[in-house]
Amino acid sequence: MNEHTSTSRRDFLLAGFATAAAVGCSDSTNPFTPEMAVAPSGEKVKLLSVTGEIIEVDKAFLKPVPDVPQLSNAEERKGIPGKKFVMVIDLARCKNLRKCQSACNHMHRVHSGQNWIKVLSMQDGEHTAPYWQPTTCMHCDEPPCVKVCPVDATFKRQDGLVLIDSDRCIGCRFCMAACPYSTRVFNWGDPGVTADVADQHYSCETSMPQKKGTVGKCDFCPDMTRRNELPHCVSACPNGVFFFGDMNEDSVSNGAETFRFSDLIKDKAGYRLMEDLGTKPSVYYLPPVNRNFPYESGL
């Protein structure tokens, strides 16, 4: 009986969970270890094995697919090989609609009242023109936040992204003090995510679910990028303010238009924020000249 159980379990694994097993998660709670001996019910179900054969399994051995992480933590920390992500924000097109913000908040289940994208009302000097500046995490190449994190909970990947491991963060908030762009937010209380999300494995690539007592910030949506899609803010903006792309391919796109990154920066005199601090941001801004909208329209 025992023997029988373990064999059919193995078959079952082959069939149903082959793909999930291939992920090879290093988590200690292995979803495949039987918690208890299951008695066969006699009722069979048909399944397709990886080799294409149709096999039968006792219904009692079926378990709902447990929540296994799509990628291992080690893989999420490494990044997507061969990429170097970059964002270009065209200030001439922004009228403070904050569609980027609401899309981001919605897709990442950001705690209400907090924002990962902030649209700032800027005025550099007394007589200079005001403008709207969407601000994300700059994914600095010399990230001060990463330098100060004592436990490597915030880290820099080879594709340029700076991400957070909320399962490791101790909540010291040193990174918040260190980030000159004030981009980081903290889950002071319960982050208030719905139960379906709250029970998921935390993924550094989706930054979900947010956890109490840890930091959060814009992650450049690497889960979307892996699927060759644009980050949520980029596709949400009706004015095409955000361009996202790969520095190695030298191209950026806002969904509707695609530019050669180097040309765009050269033609429009792109710049980065607080260049003097030496943080080397991955976000470039195009100056608010020849604007599509007057500043006042965003008030």
């Binding site: 100060v148 994190c149 004592p150 436990v151 909970a153 490791r168 963060c169 101790i170 010291c172 840890t214």
Partner: peptide, 19 residues
């Protein structure tokens, strides 16, 4: 002051000397 005091030992498990 820590948001996750129960993770104090992470300082030893994952500590990075640059911080």
């Amino acid at each position: 002051d820590m948001g996750r005091p129960e993770r104090l030992l992470n300082l030893f498990a994952y500590g990075r000397i640059q911080s």
